[in-house]
Structures are given as C-alpha cells and as structure tokens.
Design a protein around this nucleic acid. Sequence first.
DNA 1: TGTTTTATTGATAAGAATTATTATATTATA
DNA 2: TATAATATAATAATTCTTATCAATAAAACA
Lengths: 151, 151
Amino acid sequence: MEHRIDRIKKQLHAQSYKLTPQREATVRVLLEREEDHLSAEDVYLLVKEKSPEIGLATVYRTLELLSELKIVDKINFGDGVSRYDLRKEGAEHFHHHLVCIECGSVEEIIDDLLEDVERIVEKDWGFRVKDHRLTFHGVCKQCQDVAVKTK
Amino acid sequence: MEHRIDRIKKQLHAQSYKLTPQREATVRVLLEREEDHLSAEDVYLLVKEKSPEIGLATVYRTLELLSELKIVDKINFGDGVSRYDLRKEGAEHFHHHLVCIECGSVEEIIDDLLEDVERIVEKDWGFRVKDHRLTFHGVCKQCQDVAVKTK
DNA sequence: TGTTTTATTGATAAGAATTATTATATTATA
DNA sequence: TATAATATAATAATTCTTATCAATAAAACA
Ligand SMILES: [Zn+2]
Ligand SMILES: [Zn+2]
Ligand SMILES: [Zn+2]
Ligand SMILES: [Zn+2]
C-alpha cells in the first residue's frame, strides 16, 4: 500500500503536481477498493468517511488528474456514470471486464489476450494501437448455475 | 435503403411496435449516416431538417427502443454522450472501433477478430459471452503520415 | 360507422452527472 | 516575510437524459 502511494507520489511529482492530503485520501480509497469499479460519487462518499472536509469537486478534479497521468482508467459500462479503475502495477494495457447482464457483477481479466488482434489491427488497418477498452457482456458463472438449478 | 427499412419494420412488428413516421424518420437518418457515430442530439437535429415537428424526447425514446431490439448499439467513447450505431446487416456481434487520439476520427472494424478470445473467456472464466465492446485508442494512418511529413 | 381503448407524441419539467466559478487557504518562491 | 502560484470547498451553472402529462393519433370494438 505505502509502496504504491509512493510510486504515485513520484508520478505526480514528475509532472510537478503535489500529492496533497485530499489527493492522497482519494488514492487510498482507490487502492483499498481496487477490485471495485467506483463512480466519482462512490469515491467521494468513501473519502468523506475518513476526511469529511473534502469536497466533491476536488474528488472529480483528482480523478481527472489521475486519468491524465494514466494512473487510473476511466470506464463506462453504459449506465450513465463514469467509473475509475486503478491500473494494475506495471500493466502496459488496460485490463478487460466481464459484465453480467443478469446480476450486474463485474469481473476483471488481467491477461492481455489481445496481442494477436492488435497485431492484425496494426498491420491491416495501419492503426498504431496505444490502448484499448474491451468489455464482454454476458452471463457469469454464478448466474448460469442458478439458472440450471431453478430449471 | 427501403429494404432495410422494411426489415426494421418487421423487427418492430415482431414485438408489436409500430414504425411510426417519427420512428421511420429517425431510422432513415441512422441509415443515411451509417458511417457516423451520432449522439441523440445529432440525430435530433438531422431528423428535424426533414421532419421539423419532431420532439427531442421522441428521438430519445426511439433510440432507446431501437437499442432494446438490438437494431442499434449504444456506445460511449468517453466524451460524456451516448452514441448510436446501427448494427450491420446480419451481424451477430457489435463491430469494433478505432478512435484516433490525435484527430478524433473513428474507424470501424467489421471483422469479428474476437472468436479466439471469446473461446478463452468462456472456457477459462466460465462466462457465457453474449456481446462485446472493443475500442482501440491510438493513432490513425493519416495522423501517422502527417507526423512523418512534418518531422 | 361511432365509440372506447391503447399507444405515441411534443412540450417541458425534473433529475443526475459533471464542470465552471470564485473566494479562501495552502504552499512555494524571491 | 512578502509575493506569486496552486489547490481547495462550496456552490452555481451546464449538459445530458429521463419522467410527466395533456393532446393526438391509431387501433380495437360494438
Ligand atoms: Zn451474474
Ligand atoms: Zn477493472
Ligand atoms: Zn487521426
Ligand atoms: Zn461503429
């Protein structure tokens, strides 16, 4: 945890930004809830628990800043709110998501899986790939099991 | 064009919806601008040119309906607005997009490309894939060429 | 055909998410 | 320490989307 905070602090300093207490509180929430996919509002409420004086706009600004620095990725699962997802340590690319259309759960896939596809895109479309967003919509394991049982 | 309107009409009828003049006008705009990725507002303004009496809410309602029937797919490129994209005729899955971070252009990839990846996801994660969203962010051919020339 | 339902629409109000503004506070610099 | 540059909290404003509702049009019925 502290190690990752330090790294992020350095990334900010490298662009001459400071890790203010508000920014640190925000980053800590993101680290503590790394598996989740929190909206700005979610982050705000969680930060508020420990730093009640923080303002919503500061959270938005911080998330925006972290996005620009590629410390977090902003995603949208189609429900009208942006969600913020920490990059995995040392990850070159953004990870993938499995969104269940039954229960709404979101699983993560860290494996790249797209090397071949990106090679094709670069070769056949002449497009230089810098990043990607891949989300599968379908039915998760648990919901499939429930469906079998209740048949 | 008329052929595709007919097909869509049948798809609506199959769910006991009617192809009202307003809905038809909306669908025509989507067909005419199939290469583009229009927001609800964009569609509204284009429909208004030919059917000035249409209301914005009707356009939203129509796009929502077409989404439910999988006639259009709703996508979000991270700029805060939803965009609506007609499914290609007979396409099983949604197509992919190449978004240029330099000029903002959006190219489409109709080829599936994800068969292998989906097989892995189904096998290793036990997730039954129903649909996907895949967007690559990077530099398009034109912008690469410009970069070379201006060097 | 005339009457009753039902579905759809347009106008607009309401809601939710995000961004802009501004006065204040904090930090860095000379 | 005085001065300038950054960052913040509170909140107003904006943007996008959805909900409401009366009016209209279409369909079902008698
Ligand atoms: Zn599920
Ligand atoms: Zn994630
Ligand atoms: Zn480009
Ligand atoms: Zn498209």
